[in-house]
Computed example of a mutant assay.
Amino acid sequence: MLRAWPHLRIRDRPAPAPGPVVVSRVWTDLPLTSIRGIGDIGAAELDEAGVGDLVALSCAATETVAGLHGVSDKRARTLITEPGRSVRAHGIRVIFPA
């Protein structure tokens, strides 16, 4: 014999109180050269490509990093994953009004 599921009612939630909207971002003061395999020239090339810090590098597209001189697709994937570890270990979450 099949039993029907009980009818569940979800109560309306009150609207959130108006207040300031905040945004949080991860920030770290470690330079790009803190990643093994990125020197001053590589950091300058990454900065020209719009990847100016470790957080941006950890979110960069493989094609962007692989487009640099002497960087293969495999090396680009490694260069993208390594900063994520550093950001998780040394990064701080900054909250500021939007």
Rank of each mutant, 00 (worst) to 15 (best):
L2Q: 13
L2F: 13
L2T: 14
W5G: 12
P6C: 08
H7D: 13
L8I: 12
I10S: 10
I10N: 10
R13N: 10
P16R: 12
P16D: 12
A17L: 14
G19S: 13
V21I: 15
V23N: 10
R25S: 11
R25Q: 11
T28K: 00
L30H: 06
P31Y: 09
P31W: 03
P31K: 05
P31R: 03
L32F: 05
I35L: 13
G42K: 08
G42L: 07
A43K: 00
E45G: 01
G50Q: 08
D53I: 06
L54D: 05
V55K: 01
A56N: 01
A56W: 03
L57Y: 01
L57K: 01
C59I: 04
C59L: 15
A60P: 03
A60E: 02
T62P: 04
T62I: 14
E63M: 08
E63D: 15
T64Y: 03
V65S: 02
L68A: 06
L68G: 01
H69P: 09
D73H: 08
K74V: 14
K74M: 09
R75G: 03
A76V: 07
R77A: 12
T78Y: 07
I80D: 03
T81R: 15
T81C: 09
P83K: 00
S86G: 08
V87N: 04
A89E: 15
A89F: 06
V94E: 14
V94Q: 11
I95D: 15
I95Q: 11
